[in-house]
Design a protein around this nucleic acid. Structure first.
Lengths: 387, 387
DNA sequence: AGAATAGTGTCTATGAGACAGTATATG
DNA sequence: CATATACTGTCTCATAGACACTATTCT
């Protein structure tokens, strides 16, 4: 694949001709120049140069913000700095670009500014194009792209015998007022597991250290988040039925939503690619019920076999024979342990109360019937979801 | 909570006295001044000021990096800019600080630099201290951390009836001359799947678009790579026995290595956390053989049932009954398709040649015997591997 | 013919699924 | 008592595993 886009930064007022030439070289190589827009300069006396195509924007601040947005949306940055000159505005932009971890190349070694200039990043536009297009073993450093890692958590529970997922209603753009999975950005010193655990605790009020979190999949399509390069790792958590709603601030409301097809398709689908994440989480959970004892995670500390069966029925969307299910569960060693106590409150013979056993995997597994088993998550065999 | 620490930025050379006064005001209010360290200036002629307590650091770059680290560790930043003056270095630091989303206050409105200065952020040190101690609801944006995403690929094949993995011998620090998984940094425009696919193609010479790549797990421990914040996503690829070695440049040699315990522990273990990744990939592959038709991926385009059985035996490390295996494979619909042709070259009755069928999953699955099944990869139930 | 490997027939143990039947509570 | 739910016994069928047996090649 080819590198799609570049932004040029530098003092356009002083070095407009050099900028124009560099832009021409990139354009000729098929690389889009995101910034500056190559049109006529309106007022060449300004430090921050206005271009005609910017004329709809009002203030200089808005232009600067738009320029930064263009820079951040490009794949790498080329600093046009004849004689090493870097002005204040360029220095500021460089700071923001570096903090993003974007790839930066320089026409000349920077003077009068102490920045880290790795080997192979001082290079002419011609050399850079040759290295990028040729892809050979030149000494030009290959562009790496930094991303903001996030963790999104699919939190499942069972309410009124139906599978529910915890969703938040977005209070900010993008996807304003759309439903989305709870999630957050990686913070300094955290692993993604820490991030997911923190989100889980914040959203549910549970002691997150006691809820097993399973990592599902990492989503990295370049355009999956319009704000920039955000790579998200999806986690799965299974929690028992919680007392009541989870609340949240006015800009950020969390609530349980029944898992149904409308979340995955149509106009009410989830924000970002969270519909795909939810679908994977659902299929993963179904599979986990087959091979692991995770179903007990949906239940309270003490539960009856009927409650456990209703978990399977809710997640698999099938109905199971109570008798055979009972025998299968009780016979499988380590799945459930009889507490000796009995359920009260219900008509009919009181059911025995069980607690989770020590086993984590089920052998032999709980088998779904033939038709229910779907194919694995293989990259090439899937549609356009993850490309 | 109260704001505990501040860093001051600005041209200390020109405005050292103002910086000193502001620092005294913050210190008197119980706010720690992280930067600059308030000691004697060593060389006042330098644009970037050296302080005596920095004297152990060697280069200006190192001082700059240390200064940024101190700035980032503080709770907010105060820009000392009499007459609005902001120099290049301060502009650069401001860019990095803004991109981090830190809170910034200015002594004067900035001149000659177009930055967003929200209402109420131009304030004297005295006023600022009063507002902070008064305990208003200041909304400090939470820090996010950027990372370099990488994709590492576990490429398995079978050679001489043994499971082998493709490893490279590292030609650079860190982990110089250690064995490691092939992998690379995410490049602009790529998804992690693209990155993994590119690496697979580069290392094996195969048409990577035809080899299914499975995403396994994402590793994000903050200290997993000494070079900095690198988050890696592991992929699994299964390839048939390739003609011969894969070569590579002198600094970067790739070769097939038999999978054995010495790769996972002891002094010859793999670089980084690749031992953990390899172990997960191995267990995942074993599981995949049970439920999917992936075993045919180890074989050539045409293969005998014996060859397929040897795949299972190599990966599972067991021996299987030829008769029962044969019947099981042939009876499972869509697993293999008889081509009508026969193997030649061997003594004994010639074996029928098969090609892969259309099925991706096996129902019922190929069962490993009871003792072989391990627990799932659950975060909390594992040791210190991924924390 | 004998060795070597491929493939089939058949018996047994195990477990899933169907279903009848028993146990123990409430109203 | 009827009714509702929990739990058990037993039969059938499918399949894994063991093992004897047949098939087809090479030397």
């Amino acid at each position: 694949m080819t590198l799609a886009s570049v932004s040029l930064i530098g003092s356009f007022r002083q070095h407009y001709e050099e900028v124009r030439q560099a832009a021409a070289i990139f354009t000729a190589a098929g690389i889009t120049v995101r910034s500056p827009p190559m049109s006529r300069i309106v007022d060449p006396r300004q430090e921050f140069v206005r271009f005609e195509s910017d004329s709809t924007l009002e203030s200089d601040h808005a232009i600067q913000a738009a320029t930064l947005a263009k820079i951040f949306s490009s794949d790498f940055v080329y600093v046009v700095n004849p004689n090493g000159y870097i002005g204040r505005t360029t220095a500021y932009e460089l700071g923001r670009i570096h903090e993003r971890g974007m790839a930066v190349y320089y026409a000349e070694p920077p003077k009068d500014l102490l920045v880290d200039v790795p080997d192979g990043t001082v290079v002419s536009a011609h050399e850079l194009v040759a290295a990028l297009v040729g892809g050979g073993t030149s000494s030009v450093r290959r562009p790496r792209v930094a991303a903001l890692p996030t963790a999104d958590v699919v939190i499942f529970t069972i309410r009124t015998q139906r599978l529910h997922v915890l969703l938040i209603k977005r209070g900010t753009e993008p996807y304003l007022r759309k439903l989305a999975l709870p999630g957050g950005f990686l913070r300094p010193g955290e692993s993604l597991e820490d991030t997911a655990s923190r989100e889980l605790g914040e959203e549910t009020g549970l002691d997150a250290s006691r809820i097993p979190l399973r990592q599902l999949h990492t989503y990295s399509r370049p355009e999956r988040d319009p704000r920039g390069r955000v790579v998200t790792t999806a986690f799965l958590a299974i929690v028992p039925n919680l007392p009541e709603v989870v609340g949240g601030t006015d800009a950020y409301r969390a609530d349980w939503v029944e898992v149904e097809p409308s979340l995955l398709q149509g106009h009410d689908r989830l924000a970002f690619d969270h519909d795909v994440i939810l679908e994977l989480a659902l299929e993963h959970t179904r599979r986990l019920l087959e091979h692991t004892t995770i179903a007990t995670g949906f239940c309270d500390r003490r539960f009856t076999i009927r409650e456990l069966r209703q978990v399977y029925e809710a997640v698999w969307g099938t109905s199971l024979s109570p008798q055979n299910f009972h025998r299968k569960v009780v016979q499988t060693r380590g799945f459930v342990v009889d507490t000796g106590k009995k359920e009260t409150t219900k008509p009919g013979r009181p059911a025995a109360l069980y607690r989770p056993g020590k086993a984590r995997t089920l052998y032999p597994p709980m088998l779904r019937s033939k038709g229910e088993v779907k194919d694995e998550n293989v990259l090439r065999s899937r549609g356009s979801e993850d490309r």
